[in-house]
Design a protein around this nucleic acid. Structure first.
Lengths: 349, 349
DNA sequence: TTGTAGGCGTTATCAA
DNA sequence: TTGATAACGCCTACAA
């Protein structure tokens, strides 16, 4: 370690007090142009860089945010994190982050401790709501934490939450298929332990019911988000209900697996059977055929969560004791592509 | 902010000195069981948590690592980061991270400054080598930084580097196609500004030359890693060289786009034309048909880089002035699937 | 406009 | 086995 250059070193070289150097560095107070010059030169010469740890220690602000997420190798988390990072950078925050090995893990205290010990100004909990993985949330616990924004969960009293309207997304997807003349629409859902899955499932059922269409158990299978599970789910669907003329897969990976089965069994897409996915991963536009899908605008979710967190931090800084709370639900957007457009053969016949 | 509980608070409650509490917290020195008990109870009662900032300030160690990466929404960076995070967590480090908006950005000093200001113990530079985006690296600059490990670059004097042998991966891919009886093998390369692309290109050429096969410009196109570019590249290839019996796409996304074109133009895969990709993204196993591809084991890369960084940190802590350096090149692995196996029609005829 | 004293929460040194 | 005292590098309050 090359010996740290400190405020005092600069002060000595410039023949001023440490406080004066501090003033120059932080642009505060009135300083004569002459000394400012001298100090600046000393700073340059010594290559002085302020020590944020010391600064944070006294100012009680670390200008650091923490993100907890899981499954970074998947589309959703990585996109959300990208949005978070960009906004944080813009606002002058440095990011710390931690991955939950299992997103249904409920033993999160060590992670939280590690962040609070490092005096982060705020925390973004970017782990999807799965099973009872929200059970650790208790008011007494939250009270000892910096402000927290929760992502992708059912809004809850006393929490700041940013979520996507998954139900609306599923309705858009299903209604689009209905608009295309499809009547027998299957569903490959995500794992039902996930809140997002249940919401999408509810949206599908709602849209089907509204159109007076059947949504029987035989036309519904549960996947686990992987392409592999989409493949197996589709195989099961084709056995149980060879008459389906459309399938809504609850993410693009499962749609990909399902598309493969359609090809393998000699079905034409979209003539014989149409497909819609969810997420709008970049590859979806190049599936065979290009996939209609629902974009969640996840990087907006990340971005927004940082803005909200920033507000909460400022509020607490101002010593406001009331823990105000903010909830935002973003609307997803349907992207229409070939996998679902075109007139189904059955209707023409 | 609920008033911080400090060592002194605990000390007062337990009627001991601050240093004694410190000793209990850190398990150092001999302490009578009686006082240890008393201190422990006081800690529990007050809910005391050590302040890492203060600790780092005096101990000159933050137990924090920084990662700089780019394009987190892509497979490579996110997988590498996952490996980094897991190993860091195991070793007791907290991670800070920053994204380069443009991976060929060369103005990296502000980011580096922000990390050194926060006294990170080490830095992992996980941005691929592109164009001259390594030009900022200078010994004088590095001297003022904590230890740095560089990922995915051509090994360079005086730097610790962890890379994958891209050339060998491309050779494996190409030779596999040759082994399958293919003779006219096209290439959809990555952007030539990327070191990794050039290495894969070199591997392809080397394998072709060794087998006495032609690698003419007409059978080589450059993509930009996206599925879209794979599609366009394949269209161009099919125009220029409709006789190709195989294509090596330098990542799986481009392979996906290329597969689509093959289907669209009525070619049977792999009978008429075989495909190999690169990366082994999870979806590759569910492409239509399942894609043969090269796995880089990127999470191992991340993991290894942390271990090396840890060694460098320890070494410097021990006051070793010699900046030792370590270089590791990992071997990728070919995964064979249907897109490239089976006897080509031409050979049977 | 500039400087001094004191403290942020922890650990190291040296005594007791 | 325990405890003063002095750092670590910076900032706030007050004074000059």
């Amino acid at each position: 370690m090359t010996m740290q250059v400190t405020l005092l070193d600069v002060a000595r070289l410039a023949s001023v007090s440490a406080k004066t150097v501090s003033r120059v560095v932080n642009n505060q107070g009135e300083i004569s142009e002459a000394t400012r010059q001298r100090v600046q030169e000393a700073i340059e010469q010594l290559g002085y860089r302020p020590n944020m740890l010391a600064r944070s220690l006294v100012s009680q602000r670390s200008h650091t945010l923490a993100v907890v997420t899981s499954g970074l190798e998947y589309f959703g988390p990585s996109h959300t994190l990208t949005g978070i990072e960009q906004k944080s950078y813009d606002l002058g925050y440095t990011l710390m982050f931690s991955l939950l090995a299992h997103s249904d893990d409920t033993n999160v205290l060590p992670i939280l401790d590690s962040f609070t010990a490092r005096q982060v100004d705020g925390i973004i909990w970017a782990v999807s709501e799965i099973g009872d993985n929200r059970s650790w949330i208790r008011p007494e616990l939250l009270k000892n934490l910096p402000p927290v924004v929760f992502l992708t969960m059912k809004p809850m009293d006393g929490l700041s939450v940013v979520s996507v309207n998954n139900r609306s997304g599923a309705i858009q997807a299903t209604e689009h298929l209905i608009d295309q003349g499809r009547r027998k629409i299957g569903l490959i859902s995500g794992p039902m332990a996930w809140w997002e899955s249940r919401e999408r499932f509810a949206g599908y059922k709602e849209a089907m019911a509204k159109a007076g269409l059947e949504a029987a158990p035989s036309q519904i299978v549960e996947g686990d988000w992987t392409a592999q599970s989409g493949k197996h789910g589709m195989q099961r669907l084709m056995q149980q209900r060879p008459d389906l003329d459309a399938v809504f897969a609850c993410n693009d990976q499962m749609a990909l697996g399902a598309l493969g089965v359609a090809h393998q069994t000699g079905r034409k897409v979209p003539q014989d059977i149409a497909f819609v996915g969810f997420d709008n991963i970049p590859e979806a536009a190049c599936f065979w055929p290009p996939l209609t899908t629902v974009d969640q605008h996840l990087s907006d979710v990340g971005c927004l969560s940082v803005q909200i967190l920033q507000k909460l931090i400022e509020a607490r800084q101002q010593g406001q004791e009331d823990r105000s709370t903010e909830v935002k639900i973003l609307e997803p957007e349907l992207f229409t592509r070939e996998s679902s457009t075109g007139i189904p053969a059955g209707v023409n016949a």
